[in-house]
């Protein structure tokens, strides 16, 4: 009697374990593969020299995680901008930078000021939203500017 109960318990335990393993395997199979993308951040200021800028960027579609931020193309903004480290692994970040260069050594027109690296699980195409919090010229005067985000690093 006792031996029979022990065998039954053992059998049930094995069945339970097998079911759990199968479920875990199925979950792993269902997880979509993650991929990494870069998002180029451009600021367009027309003729005005860009001495300071601040952008608020967030993902509006897809489960996007920010995993890295680096500087842009122009020497004035080649260093990574200021950002909150808490933005890592999240889908929103505020980035900002300034340069004390003279107007002749500041970028104008369309300039890539930063590159954001993101992790995107699944095949969903991410969508981002960006707005300019501030943009100023070398005198600290606010200037009109537009921000353009582009997936990938091509200019």
């Amino acid at each position: 009697m006792k031996r029979g109960m022990m065998m039954t318990c053992g059998l049930l335990s094995m069945l339970l374990l097998a079911a759990l393993c199968e479920r875990g395997f199925a979950i792993r199979q269902a997880e979509p593969p993650a991929r990494f993308e870069t998002v180029s951040v451009f600021v367009e200021t027309g003729e005005a020299p860009l001495a300071a800028w601040q952008l608020d960027i967030s993902a509006t579609a897809g489960t996007v995680r920010i995993v890295g931020i680096e500087g842009g193309d122009h020497p004035a903004y080649s260093e990574p901008p200021y950002y909150d480290p808490l933005a890592m692994q999240q889908d929103r970040v505020i980035i900002a930078a300034f340069s004390l260069n003279g107007p002749e050594a500041l970028p104008s027109g369309r300039t890539r000021v930063a590159t954001i690296h993101v992790q995107i699980p699944g095949d969903v195409e991410p969508e981002f939203e960006a707005k300019i919090d501030a943009a100023a010229d070398h005198d600290g005067e606010f200037i009109d500017a537009e921000v353009v985000l582009q997936i990938g690093t091509d200019k």
Binding site: A52, W53, Q54, A96, A97, L100, A136
Partner: peptide, 11 residues
């Protein structure tokens, strides 16, 4: 508060 304040201070 924004980056322009930091810029003015740095300048």
């Amino acid at each position: 508060l924004n980056i322009v304040d930091a810029f003015i201070l740095a300048r």
